[in-house]
Structure formats: C-alpha cells, structure tokens
C-alpha cells in the first residue's frame, strides 16, 4: 500500500501547533477589555482618563477578584460553587461582630475568615467529591446555610470602630507616577488599598499553581474528562475535594478583603457576588463544562465586567436596572461569541 493514505484521516498533520482553547479564550478576553477601556478613555473621557479610575475598579473589586479565581478553579474541574457570595457575607458579619462585641483583633478576623472558608470547603468538597452529589445542589445548600447563619449572627448592620482595624483599612499604597492634579491643581497621588495587593498576589500564585504544579494540571485533567483522568491514575476525588476547599478558602479570604474594604458587617454585603464571580469567570474564558480556563483571564473578566458597568452609568443610564441589564447583555454576548468560536474551531 502506498504511503500517505493513512496519515490523512480527519486532520492532516499540522506543522503549526493550534492554539489551545484556554489561550484562545484568554486572548479574546484581554483584547475585549482593552478595547472597552480604550473606548472609554478616548470617547467618554471624564474620569476614565485618570489612572485612579482604573485603580478604583481594583479597589472596589479586590474581593471579587479573589472569589472569581476560586470560582474559576472549581469550574475548571467541571464543578461550580454558588455559595461564595454568601460565605463572603458571613465572614464580614462574623468578623464585624467579633471586632465590635468580642474584642477581637485583625488576627482573629483573619482566623475567622479562613476558618469559615475552610469549614465550608471541607464539607462541600467532601459531599461533592466523595459522595458524588452534584456541586450545584451542595453549594446551593451552602449558600442558603451561610445566608441564614449571617442573620442569626446579627440581623442589624454592624459598623466597626476598632482603630487598629480602621488603620489597616484606610492604608493607601501610593502608586508612583500615576497621580493627577485635581480641580484646584493640587497633585493627588494614585493609590491602591491593601486588599488589591493581596488579590494580585493571589492571582499570581494561582496562575503558578495551575500552570506548573501537578495539582493544577490535575484540575484541568479532571475537568477535561473525569473518567479518563481516573484511568490515567489521577485521584479524581481528592482533586475535586481540593478544588472545592481552595474555592471556599478563597471565598473566606474574599470575605476578609470585602470586610477590609467596607469596614462593616451587613446582610446585604456581597449580595449577588456569586453571580458576578461566575460571570467574570465566563467572560474570562472559563468554560462551565470544565477543563478550560485561566485565572489571568478571570482577572480580566472582573475588570471587563466592572468597566462596562461604569461605561453604562457614565452614558447616563444610571437607573439601577440598566446596570443589571448591561451586565446581562455583556454576558450574553460573550457566551454567544465563545460558543461560536469553539463550534467553529471544533468543526475544523
């Protein structure tokens, strides 16, 4: 038989290695973010021209960045965790009560945050990974539980007056070279809050985890095809368990950052953040089917989401409902674009 017939099945041997799904979606996300932001800078101007505006997106969303990264990890393994918003809220409330009424300090707050996160992660992770219950249902129950517990801890908002805590909360880290003069011509330096530094650190650490560690690669393998992963000798249960623990732990950390930003406990804290986190992850190129995604994309997802919110409100649509509708429209657009891109790619 002559050679050459065999090789030519569906795909000819490609010389150039095609871009992986993860990188393709990441590229789309980053490009979209830059287009959005540049559009705002050149056509809307106003506050967008000031670097501080960009830094404020970070300041306001440090917690969401951390939550979304955790969400992405669970989504990469093919799961989902919708309890993260409620856990954040519970951490805020418990921390506030601890500081105000039980004489806690910044360290007990950190302990509480991570402890609550860990507890949720261990329970949910165990139920999902070892008992094989659908993550959506488990984290739904987790969300209910955290919401209920928050009101049991305190129904009324609790404002924190502890000075040591407020000092940390109000610490502003100046970013050199990005400041701008105000109306009176006084130079105002640009700043970020402590939380932003922690959030960025988390993004970098998680990026390394996903890229270069065995555990990180196992997350992708399990999400890609969990039966195959099992056959390949990966401990699927442990991997899923760890993904959930990591996600809830990050939700706990997100709670601490949220608390550090707002300085109070309130049942309305972080309301709807689970949906924001899911939306950010998706906009950032994480597929809910698992196996594809990247925390850097998620980071840009958070930025894109909040940039568009700001753009819409500065266009004069500042009634509350417009913000939601545009976020939804953005999500819709991204989903459709992603699905078309992936369908096209798979057809080839």
């Amino acid at each position: 038989m002559p050679k050459g017939i065999a090789v030519d099945k569906q795909g000819r041997l490609k010389e150039r290695v095609a871009m992986s799904d993860t990188n393709l979606l990441l590229t789309i996300t980053v490009v979209v973010f830059f287009i959005l932001y540049l559009y705002a800078v050149f056509f809307l101007q106003g506050s967008f021209t000031k670097p501080q505006n960009f830094l404020n997106i970070l300041n306001n969303n440090a917690s969401l960045i951390v939550l979304s990264c955790g969400m992405s990890i669970v989504m990469i393994t093919g799961g989902i965790d919708i309890s993260v918003g409620a856990v954040t809220c519970l951490v805020c409330m418990t921390s506030a009560v601890n500081l105000e009424r039980q004489g806690g300090n910044i360290f007990t707050v950190i302990l509480i945050g991570l402890g609550i996160g860990l507890a949720f992660g261990v329970v949910q992770g165990f139920l999902v990974a070892h008992l094989g219950i659908q993550p959506f249902i488990i984290s739904l129950a987790g969300m209910f539980f955290a919401k209920g517990m928050t009101t049991i801890v305190s129904k009324e908002p609790v404002r924190v007056t502890d000075e040591a805590f407020l000092a940390v909360k109000d610490t502003r880290i100046t970013v050199p070279g990005l400041g701008s003069p105000n109306k009176l011509g006084v130079y105002i330096p640009a700043y970020v809050e402590v939380g932003v530094v922690i959030a960025l650190l988390v993004v970098v650490l998680l990026f390394c985890l996903l890229r270069w560690t065995k555990l990180g690669r196992n997350f992708y393998a399990v999400g890609g095809n969990n039966q195959s992963a099992n056959m390949l000798g990966i401990n699927v249960r442990r991997t899923k368990f760890l993904a959930h623990v990591l996600c809830s732990l990050l939700a706990g950390l997100g709670g601490i950052l949220y608390f550090l930003h707002v300085g109070s406990g309130d049942v309305a804290n972080a309301a709807g953040d689970e949906m924001n986190a899911i939306a950010s992850s998706i906009i950032g190129g994480t597929l809910l089917t698992g196996g594809v995604g990247n925390v850097v994309g998620t980071f840009f997802g958070v930025l894109s989401l909040n940039t568009i919110k700001r753009i819409v409100s500065s266009l004069g649509f500042d009634e509350a409902w417009w913000s939601n509708i545009t976020v939804a429209a953005m999500l819709c657009l991204f989903l459709v674009v992603q699905s078309i891109v992936l369908l096209r790619k798979n057809k080839k």
Binding site: S20, R217, Y220, A221, G224, N225, S228, L232, G291, V292
Partner: peptide, 8 residues
C-alpha cells in the same frame, strides 16, 4: 480513548 482532550 481514555485521555483528556483538553490537555496537550
């Protein structure tokens, strides 16, 4: 095939 299609 028991491999993961999303990995290299």
């Amino acid at each position: 095939i028991t491999l993961c299609p999303n990995l290299t």
